[in-house]
Design a protein around this nucleic acid. Structure first.
Lengths: 203, 203
DNA sequence: CGATTATTGGAGCGGACACTCCAGCAATGC
DNA sequence: GCATTGCTGGAGTGTCCGCTCCAATAATCG
């Protein structure tokens, strides 16, 4: 009762949480959300189910937490891009940021998971939509600036243009996750051409 | 024993098979493969489980049969395109063919199913790969012809070019399945621009 | 140390799901 | 009409999986 309060090291807690999340991410990427069992995640993380459900209320929470990690990062990247002076350079930096995780082979399959689950879990869909919207609105603004200064001319409105650029970056993940033999750098080179030609810009 | 052989109407059998397959397709599109139960399919098709498993050995067989329907169609389309005189017109016709099903809202979600299952069911992956390869090889040949006659110049080798064009058509399905509010015709218009600019062709 | 409380692994529970089984039915041939 | 056989629905079955529960342990305090 009046006893000794045991204070907990919050760093260890957070680290273990992340460790489990990383394991879950690998499992989801490999087998998809529905097909991975919580036992899979436990085995991959090297913990028991008691531990897993101590840190996360249920399997769905694992997925949500995993993509909440992205949200902050994406928003920050978007903000940084908007602060840059040269809009075209900023746009390219943002695009590069979007494909930055393309080399993380262990997590490529998560694109499929997002596509599948977003159409079935409304809350998850909202999370993903929020994350993507942050990036897209920044992208839209940059496209607008570039168009006004004449270095870009897609012939479509800025919002649609931004949205398509975003989709094209997604394609790279999709292609790489579907075909292991593709060369990452070659794919990125083609992406660059596809986007720059779509935008009708010099670089 | 020596009894009366009862001959069966094969048309009815085939029709019922297709009816069940269509129902399965709608279910898979809506909820994904793993999350749809065989009971879902039965309810959607209006049959009992006895009937379902009389026509298909298991749930996986439903998925396989569903995409085997596509295989013949795609191969035929590819062949027809190769037979055309004008390679550029043929290329565009083939692209149009690839996005022909884009208006079938009930089945849009199947893209996600393919992505997810192909990475986990080797036999299914092989089926999908075969189907896509047929189209891609035709697309590759058309790109080659167009490049030789100078009406196309992507700056990348024909195979990679074809593969990316194919991916871009997939994007349309993905975008429409993820956002109901998008306008189909507007999307197709952007796709046209994206592809023609990537190919650096006149039309 | 000893007291207290967070953390841990794993046994096990309840429910759901893919698939089977079978008894009645419908369709065919004579 | 009758015999035969395929077709059909739904009740049932074994298995698996998400999650709970708990006893044991580890960490932190005075």
């Amino acid at each position: 009762m009046s006893g000794v309060a045991r204070t907990v090291d919050p760093e260890k807690h957070a680290a273990r949480r992340l460790h489990i999340l990383a394991a879950a991410g690998r499992c989801f990427s490999r087998k998809g959300f529905d097909a991975t069992t919580t036992a899979d995640v436990c085995a991959e993380a090297g913990v028991g189910s008691g531990t897993l459900f101590h840190y996360f209320t249920n399997k769905r929470a694992l997925l949500h937490a995993l993509f909440e990690l992205d949200e902050a990062e994406q928003a920050e990247r978007a903000e940084r891009a908007l602060a840059e002076a040269d809009p075209l350079a900023a746009l390219w930096r943002l695009v590069d940021g979007l494909v930055a995780d393309v080399r993380e082979r262990d997590y490529l399959g998560l694109v499929g998971v997002v596509i599948q689950q977003a159409s079935r879990d409304a809350e998850f869909a909202a999370l993903v939509a929020r994350t993507e919207a942050a990036t897209r609105s920044a992208l839209t603004e940059l496209v607008r600036r570039c168009t006004e200064s004449g270095v870009v001319d897609s012939g479509h409105d800025a919002e649609a243009t931004a949205s398509w650029v975003q989709s094209m970056t997604d394609v790279v993940y999709l292609r790489l996750s579907g075909d292991e033999s593709l060369d990452v750098d070659a794919e990125l080179a083609v992406l660059h051409d596809v986007v720059s030609r779509f935008l009708r810009c010099a670089a």
